[in-house]
C-alpha cells in the first residue's frame, strides 16, 4: 500500500469517489481510473486477478460529467502554498484589472 487515509484530504477524496460510484453504478476503481483518464494522463492499472482486470478495463467507457470531475478535483485539492497563493491573490494587479478578460494559454509555461 502506498497511500492510506492519513489526512482529511485523502478521506474526502475517497468519500467523493465512493459517492460518485454509488450514484453512477460503477465501481470505485472505475471512477478513480476514469478520473485520471479525464486528466489526459495514462493510468497504469495493477490487477491481481482477471476479475479485477475486467473491472479496470471497463473504466475506459466511464464518462464522468464535468460536475463530477469538479467535485473530485475540489475534494482532492491541496494547498499549493508560496508562491502560488500570493500570485493568485495578485491576479487583478498582474492583469491590469482585466485579468478575467484574458484567455490564457493551456500550454505549460517554461
Amino acid at each position: 500500500m502506498i497511500h492510506d487515509e492519513s489526512n482529511q484530504i485523502k478521506t474526502a477524496t475517497v468519500d467523493t469517489v465512493l459517492a460518485i460510484a454509488d450514484e453512477t453504478g460503477h465501481s470505485p476503481g472505475q471512477i478513480a481510473i476514469a478520473w485520471v483518464l479525464a486528466k489526459g494522463t495514462l493510468p497504469i492499472i495493477g490487477p491481481r486477478t482477471a476479475e479485477q482486470l475486467a473491472d479496470n478495463l471497463a473504466s475506459v467507457d466511464v464518462q464522468l460529467t464535468s460536475e463530477q470531475l469538479s467535485r473530485l478535483d475540489a475534494a482532492s485539492a491541496i494547498t499549493l502554498g508560496f508562491p502560488h497563493d500570493i500570485v493568485a491573490a495578485s491576479a487583478a494587479s498582474l492583469g491590469g484589472g482585466k485579468h478575467e478578460l484574458i484567455d490564457t494559454s493551456i500550454r505549460a509555461l517554461r
Binding site: 500500500m1 502506498i2 497511500h3 492510506d4 487515509e5 485523502k10 477524496t13 475517497v14 469517489v17 465512493l18 465501481s27 470505485p28 476503481g29 478513480a32 481510473i33 485520471v36 486528466k39 489526459g40 494522463t41 495514462l42 493510468p43 497504469i44 492499472i45 495493477g46 479485477q52 479496470n56 505549460a108
Partner: peptide, 19 residues
C-alpha cells in the same frame, strides 16, 4: 495508489503519469 480496502472495497491501485 489509493486504498479502498478499509472502506469495504477491494484494493485498487492506479499509477499515473502527469503533465
Amino acid at each position: 495508489r489509493r486504498r479502498f480496502a478499509d472502506r469495504q472495497i477491494s484494493q485498487r491501485g492506479i499509477w499515473t503519469g502527469t503533465r
